[in-house]
Design a protein around this nucleic acid. Sequence first.
DNA 1: AGTGAGCTTACGGGAAACCGTAAAAAACAC
DNA 2: GTGTTTTTTACGGTTTCCCGTAAGCTCACT
Lengths: 222, 222
Amino acid sequence: MKFEKILVAEDQEMANISLRRTLEEYQLPAPHYAYYCEHALTALKIALKDEQPFDLLVTDLYFQEDGSGKQLPDAKALIKAAKALQPDLKVLVFSGEGKAAIIRSLYDDYHIDGFVRKARGDAQELKSALECIAKNQRYYGREFRSLAAQENQHTFTDYDRTIIRLLAEGHPQKDIPAWLEDHQIQPSGLSTIEKRLNLIKGAMHFTKNEQLIAFCKDIGIL
Amino acid sequence: MKFEKILVAEDQEMANISLRRTLEEYQLPAPHYAYYCEHALTALKIALKDEQPFDLLVTDLYFQEDGSGKQLPDAKALIKAAKALQPDLKVLVFSGEGKAAIIRSLYDDYHIDGFVRKARGDAQELKSALECIAKNQRYYGREFRSLAAQENQHTFTDYDRTIIRLLAEGHPQKDIPAWLEDHQIQPSGLSTIEKRLNLIKGAMHFTKNEQLIAFCKDIGIL
DNA sequence: AGTGAGCTTACGGGAAACCGTAAAAAACAC
DNA sequence: GTGTTTTTTACGGTTTCCCGTAAGCTCACT
C-alpha cells in the first residue's frame, strides 16, 4: 500500500521540517495542510464527498485556540470525529507530548496507528512509522516502548532476566529447560518458557527475541 | 560431564579468591594446587601414571622465576607439554593478561579451552567458562570478544548494520530481502543475507542472532 | 569471445522456534 | 476429603531459520 492523499494538520506553519522532508524523501504526493482542527475535519469531509478521500492524517496534538466557535477543542476530538467519519483513515500523531498516560490513551482509546514524538531523531522515526502504517500495522515506536518501561507495563522478574540472559548468551531455547534444572530453577518446562517469553513480548508489542534482547540492553537489565 | 580432578597452577598463594569461591560454589572436588610450572607438570605426569589423571588444568600465565633450573619458562610451555602428555586435558587460563595477540595465540596455537581475565566480574565469567568446558565446548568469553572487536577481526559495514538493525527491530529475516529491494540496497538475496550473518557470527564465535544483537548493543553500533 | 574467480542467488532437507490445545500437577477454597 | 482455579507441562502442526549444494551472474584478463 502506498499513501495517495495525505492531510497534515498542524498550526505551526513554519515548523515541522522533519515532517516535510521525510514526506518528500519518500516521494509521497505533496500533502494538504490544515492549520486548524476544524479545517482538517472539513477537508476530510469534502474529500470523502468527492470520492477522493484521504488515506492518511498526520496531526499534531494541540492547536492554539483562535477564539472562534471551537467545535473541536484539540486533536483528540479531531481524531475521534475523523475515525467516525472514515474508519479506514490512518492516523499518525506527531507531537511534542511526552506524557505516558496520554500517549497510551491515544493508542487505546483513540485507536491511532502511530505516535512519533517531536524530538531528536524524529525524522528517522517518522520513516519507520510511515512504513509500518503503510503495511496496515500499527506503529509502536520509541515513545511507546519507553513509556512501557516507565509504566512497568511489564516488570521483569529474576526468572525473566535469567531466560533472556541465556538467550543473549546464545543458548538455544530448547536447551534452556535443561539449564534451569541444572541450576534448580523452577519452572523449567519448555512450554512455560515459551509462554513467558510470549507474555513479555506481547506486552511490549514485540514479535521476535532479537527485539527483546535489544530492548533489554537499552534499558540496562542485561 | 563433571570435573573429577582439578589442578590449579598459580604462584600467588593468597590470590584467586574468585577462583576458589567459584570452584566451591560448584561443589567441585577440592583442587590440587601447584605453585610452580614444573610442579604442575610433574603432578600431571604422576596422576596419569597412577591412572587417576586430572581432567582440568586451571593456570595463570606468568610465574615468578625462582632461579632454579627453569625447564618451563612460563605457562605456555606448561600448556604445550601438558597437551602433549594428555591431549584430552581441558585447559582454562585465568590471568591478568589483556593483550589481544597473546590471548588469540593461546586459542589458536595452544588450543586452550578457555581464557578468563582476572578483573571485575571474573567470578561470573569463570562460571560460564566452567560450564562451557564441561560440555566439551571451548569457551569464548568477554575477553575474546572484545579483542575480536579491537582487532577488527570483523569490521561491520553499513550493509551489516542495516541487516542487524532490521533484526533488532523485529523483522523476520525472511522478510529482509523484500525490505532491501524496497530501499534499493544490494545484494538482497536471502541466501546472501544468511551467508553474511554466518560470516559475522562465525568470526565472533556466535551461534545465534540474539548473541549478535547483544554484542552490537554493547559496542554501540546499534 | 572464452574462461575462470568471486559474488549472488535459488533450492531443499533438517532443526529450531512458534502457537494453539489439552492433559497433568499444584495451589487454593470450602 | 472434594472441587475449582491456576500453573506447569506435554504434544503436534506450521512457520521460520539454518546450512550445504549447486546453479547463475558479473567482472576482469587474455
